[in-house]
């Protein structure tokens, strides 16, 4: 197992033997705050990517805020969810203050995708048009979703969180996770004109 994967799982004791696990790092940081720093090095890049895909440039500030919030709340961290999902949960809660920015971004991306230039080779042009239309429709679908449904959908798609992890980090019942995800997926399929799974 690669180092990053080991930490992604977030289970105590999982990871290279010469490095403390994420849970060990959090425990040690309660007495020695600077011991928290390795968590930033391990998780900042994927957390930033998740934020940037959602809100664009404000992700730079939100990345710092995510880790500041995590650091301040580290005493209430519980090891059953794992550090990376916990960080994605914090990041998701911070994104809520930027809902309009996020939706504006998706609409702008949809306009960009719709206006992509067509290349000269016919087959390639068709492929690109398809891809551009797909990007446009996806962006518009995301913009049209309810914020809470979008959180669950993107924690699934971009953060790879399970139902249980999403329920924990968003502090909602697992049944709610299922229903929100079901609704978000159905609306996205409708926007993409995909057939319902049988």
């Amino acid at each position: 197992m690669r180092r990053a994967e080991a930490h992604e799982r977030g289970h105590p004791g999982v990871g290279p033997p010469d490095e403390p696990s994420d849970d060990d790092v959090i425990r040690a940081s309660l007495a020695e705050p600077e011991r928290f720093a390795p968590l930033f090095d391990r998780h900042a890049v994927p957390v930033h990517r998740y934020l940037a895909r959602r809100v664009g440039p404000p992700a730079d500030d939100l990345l710092a805020e995510t880790f500041l919030v995590a650091f301040r709340r580290r005493a209430s961290y519980t090891s059953d969810v794992g550090v990376r999902p916990w960080l994605f949960g914090i990041a998701t809660n911070l994104v809520r203050r930027h809902v309009r920015t996020e939706e504006r971004r998706y609409r702008a991306l949809a306009r960009l995708a719709a206006g992509e230039s067509t290349p000269s080779v016919i087959e390639d042009a068709i492929d690109r048009l398809d891809a551009g239309a797909l990007r446009r429709d996806l962006a518009l679908a995301l913009a049209s979703l309810h914020r809470r449904d979008r959180d669950v959908l993107l924690l699934t798609a971009w953060a790879d969180l399970s139902y249980e992890q999403i329920a924990t980090v968003l502090d909602i019942p697992i049944g709610t996770v299922r229903s929100r995800l079901h609704r978000a997926r159905r609306l996205t399929r409708l926007a993409l004109a995909l057939e319902e799974p049988t």
Binding site: F36, V45, L68, R135, A139, L153
Partner: peptide, 26 residues
Amino acid sequence: INLLRTHGPDAPEASTETLRLARDRL
């Protein structure tokens, strides 16, 4: 879900400067 991963809105990776500033704040 897979379409969102492959064709959903994307963004450039965090720059070294962004990471450094965030780490300094922490």
